[in-house]
Nucleic acid binder design. Structure first.
Lengths: 142, 142
DNA sequence: ATGTTAAATTGTAATGATTACAACTTAGAA
DNA sequence: TTCTAAGTTGTAATCATTACAATTTAACAT
């Protein structure tokens, strides 16, 4: 059940706690880029003793060790992504969905030459997603 | 003094107010990607009646009309950029500076084919800036 | 110039995400 | 099994942002 996450934590010398395992599992199974509050609400029922502070602490630890990624695409709250490989994101301003965009940044070469030490790369696109576009054209009858 | 900004507002059919002119001028002259609070503090002394709500309202209006850009690179607060052309940003985790990176996103072509309607593109790099790197190597004596 | 009105500004209060903190609990090493 | 540093919890504080109602004003028509 949790072997996968136990392994991940062990490999990164992070102390194993039931809360961290639950949070990792939740993020792995919910690739919707949830907020801390959504993680908390999603786990609270089956883990009544869970505290929201623990969610914040845990995602911070997991991010520091590179196990997960945090996104600031929405502006108002952080979102968390189980994927830690480089990819970009698209935020639909209409339905709020955040979609993974599987492209790598071709500018990294230039950045490495700049003299700055680059540790994170975030590519955020914002607009109206494919599905909402379809709905719009249907409504307009055009 | 303010002709440039009067022109900008007129061209975009935005009602001209002293507050909006001051805020635009501040952003033009302070290309440090200031927060709403920094704009407010920077202008408050010479404009004692200025309200922080007005700063928030104004930057929102200016952004909606495409005159300025807002950045969510830091996560905890929005930052505002007088430049509205496409460019990327680098946030130094050590000194907090946000540096303009003059590269365009070569992925836009792919995005246009994706079916999503792209209205905004944000490229955020995070790490340690050139200056802080120099200081670090000096300290280490290496 | 003056009057009119919708829009903008202001100050304060509310909200919402996140952090600080102190008491309690627990994972993992000895 | 014991010990201790680290993790968890709940509550209270903080900080950015938004809501709102009263006042003021930009811009247009007269």
């Amino acid at each position: 059940m949790f072997e996968k996450y136990v392994k991940l934590l062990k490999e990164n010398s992070i102390k194993i706690t039931p809360q961290r395992l639950e949070i990792l599992k939740y993020l792995d199974e919910n690739r919707t880029h949830p907020t801390a509050d959504q993680i908390y609400t999603g786990l609270k029922e089956k883990n009544p003793s869970l505290s929201k502070t623990t969610v914040y602490n845990s995602v911070e630890t997991l991010e520091e060790h590179g196990l997960i990624q945090s996104l600031t695409i929405s502006g108002s709250e952080s979102r968390y992504d189980f994927r830690n490989d480089m990819h970009h994101h698209f935020l639909c301003k209409k339905c709020g969905t955040i979609i993974d965009i599987d492209i790598k940044c071709p500018n990294i070469g230039k950045m490495l030459e700049s003299g700055h030490k680059v540790e994170e790369v975030h590519g955020y696109f914002k607009g109206i997603c494919k599905d909402c576009m379809k709905k719009e054209t249907k409504q307009n009858g055009s």
